[in-house]
Simulated assay, not measured.
Amino acid sequence: MSDGVGNTVLVLVGSLRAASVNRQLAELATESAPEGVTFEWFDRLGELPHYNEDIDNDDVPDVVVALRETAARADAALVVTPEYNGSIPGVLKNAIDWLSRPYGEGALKGKPLAVVGASLGQYGGVWAHDETRKSFGIAGPRVVEGLDLSVPTNSLDGKHPRENTEVAARLRDIVGKLAAEIG
């Protein structure tokens, strides 16, 4: 386990919307980082081409190289995602597919990962969060059990998540525990 000094956490946000509550949760997580932990956002998921093994070669698109290099530099990952139609947003699933390659040796292999997020409905995206954990778990990162937060967006009353004491405290705890998982 790490003391958090000099560690980097990759942040992936499954919503492309600028005003997304999930983006706000990611901001709050960044603000909650323990001393010595840096959050590095990869904010180009919308630019990734659909995964296609035919283009996953020595001439892979630059945005894929950037994603993989950012993930390789990271010591852990925090995924913040909504739920779309009961599942993972397409841009996030596509990123998982790119990060899972080369097969068995992806850039996040063995690194601790946590999944949190917010969505409409009373369960706050729990299905998408479970599916994201499952997909990443197969893709290679070490999904840390018990580090979960699914926020129903209506519970925030239109406010930034940092204004909700319970959400802010739970997210701060998750971020601290994720940082502590870095080996």
Rank of each mutant, 00 (worst) to 15 (best):
V60M: 13
N52Q: 13
E27M: 06
S20W: 09
P34G: 10
V143I: 10
A179P: 01
A72S: 14
S87D: 12
A77H: 06
I55C: 11
T38R: 15
P82K: 08
T132A: 07
K93W: 07
T70S: 14
V9D: 00
T153P: 02
G146V: 05
W127C: 14
N85P: 09
P61N: 09
P161M: 11
D97S: 10
I174D: 01
A77V: 11
S119I: 09
D59Q: 10
A107H: 12
S20K: 08
A139H: 13
V80T: 09
A107E: 10
G104Y: 06
L120G: 14
L113I: 09
K93F: 13
L149Y: 00
S100A: 12
G183K: 12
L16M: 01
L178P: 02
R17C: 04
A95Y: 09
K134P: 08
T165S: 15
D56L: 12
T153C: 05
S100W: 02
V65E: 11
A74F: 01
G158I: 06
V9T: 03
G176I: 02
A71M: 04
E105G: 02
P89H: 03
L120W: 11
V116A: 13
H160A: 02
V63N: 04
R162E: 05
G137E: 09
L149T: 03
E145F: 00
I96D: 02
A169R: 13
V91R: 01
S20T: 12
A18Y: 11
A128M: 08
V144Y: 07
D58Q: 15
R44N: 13
T153D: 02
E145D: 10
R133M: 12
D54W: 01
D56W: 10
N164R: 02
L156I: 02
G106D: 04
T70H: 09
F42A: 06
G183A: 13
G176N: 02
S119P: 14
G158A: 07
V37C: 08
E163M: 04
T30W: 03
K134Y: 14
G4S: 08
V115T: 11
S32F: 06
R44A: 15
Q122M: 14
K109G: 09
A168H: 01
G90A: 15
E166A: 14
Y51E: 04
